[in-house]
Computed example of a mutant assay.
Amino acid sequence: MIDHAHDLDALHEATERLLSATEKLDDAALAQPSRLPGWSRGHVVAHLSRNADAIVNVLQGRPMYADSETRDRDIERDASRPRAEQLADLAGSAARFMDAASAPADWSRTVTLRNGVTDSASRIPFRRRVEVELHHVDLGIGYELEDLPEEFVGREIDFLAERFDRHPKVVSIGATADDGRSWTTGGGAEGNPVVVRATAPELLGWLCGRRDGSALTVEGGPLPVLPPL
């Protein structure tokens, strides 16, 4: 069962880690490439700021973004701002989200996200936490998948396994972490079932496109190619 109050507390901690880390960046560091193709660190920070405001829209019943073009244009517009503006916006947008999420609300209601995706409002704090945690890693400033809280790693693998379940381009996959946790996913494409084993952070990295899977032990066939998220 989703506990939105727990997720809001965990999100606050993740956001504080992010804000503390980005405080150490200067203008030159923000302009350097991130780990996301074509994006500087400034793009990642700008995306996190605009995503926070977009999720406020979701919680308050408005469209998440006006359209994809506006989303992309706003990120590009904000990516090269001076450090002080970037970091003030990152902190301010995070605070606006927490204010909106703290208002009395029916957390069991259904909300609409980008591209018509719907979900329970109770899952929104965790969705925002995913953005904060993974994009912190994407900045390439010393926070790695191995630094992510164990509980978060397991839940995000749960989410991604559910997302790829019965996907028409993914064969059956059984994934096992070295701590004994296991997941199944795929199964919508023809081909032999594949078993993969690794640490939980390595499994997460492969499933979310942050690692190439070279650290995984694979049995039953080649490592499946996963579709983009």
Rank of each mutant, 00 (worst) to 15 (best):
R210P: 05
D3V: 06
E190P: 03
V132I: 13
A46M: 03
W39M: 12
L139Q: 00
P33Q: 06
D3T: 07
L25W: 03
R114T: 11
V45G: 00
D178C: 05
E151M: 06
D178M: 09
A88W: 00
F164K: 01
R211Y: 08
V58S: 00
R96W: 03
A46V: 10
D78E: 13
A189F: 07
R114I: 12
Q32N: 10
D212T: 14
L36A: 15
K24N: 08
F164N: 00
D165V: 09
H12G: 14
T176I: 12
D106L: 07
A200E: 08
G191L: 09
Y65L: 04
A54I: 04
L30K: 05
A5S: 12
G142H: 03
R62G: 06
P168R: 10
P149K: 07
E85M: 08
G187N: 05
D179A: 01
L203K: 03
S108D: 13
I124P: 00
L207T: 10
G154S: 09
A29S: 13
N57V: 08
G186Y: 06
L87Q: 02
H43V: 09
K169A: 13
D9K: 11
G180I: 11
R181W: 00
E219G: 07
R210N: 09
S20V: 12
V196E: 01
P63H: 07
M64N: 04
Q32R: 15
G209C: 13
R73N: 13
R211S: 15
G142E: 03
V153Q: 01
G154C: 05
E190T: 13
P82C: 05
H6V: 13
L223D: 12
V153A: 05
R17L: 14
G180M: 08
E162W: 09
T118V: 12
V171I: 14
R128M: 02
F126C: 02
Q86K: 03
P33G: 04
A84L: 09
A105K: 02
P201I: 01
L36Y: 07
S20E: 14
G187M: 07
P82E: 07
G116H: 08
A175L: 14
L87M: 03
Q86H: 07
G140K: 02
V195D: 13
E219M: 12
L204S: 04
D67Q: 08
R155K: 13
P228F: 11
A103D: 12
A66R: 15
D158Q: 04
A175C: 08
W39K: 11
P125H: 03
L134P: 01
R181F: 00
I55V: 11
V153K: 01
E13D: 15
D178N: 12
A84M: 05
E146S: 14
M1Y: 05
L160R: 08
D72E: 15
L160S: 04
R83K: 11
R155I: 02
L36N: 10
H136K: 03
R73V: 08
R123W: 06
K24R: 15
G187L: 06
M64S: 07
I55E: 06
N192Y: 01
L160Q: 10
P168H: 07
E190F: 07
S182T: 15
A161K: 08
F126Y: 10
R210W: 07
R128L: 04
E69V: 14
S214D: 15
D74P: 06
D119L: 14
Q60E: 15
E13W: 10
S214I: 12
L11R: 02
K169R: 11
H167T: 06
E69Y: 06
T70K: 09
E131V: 01
L48W: 00
D53N: 11
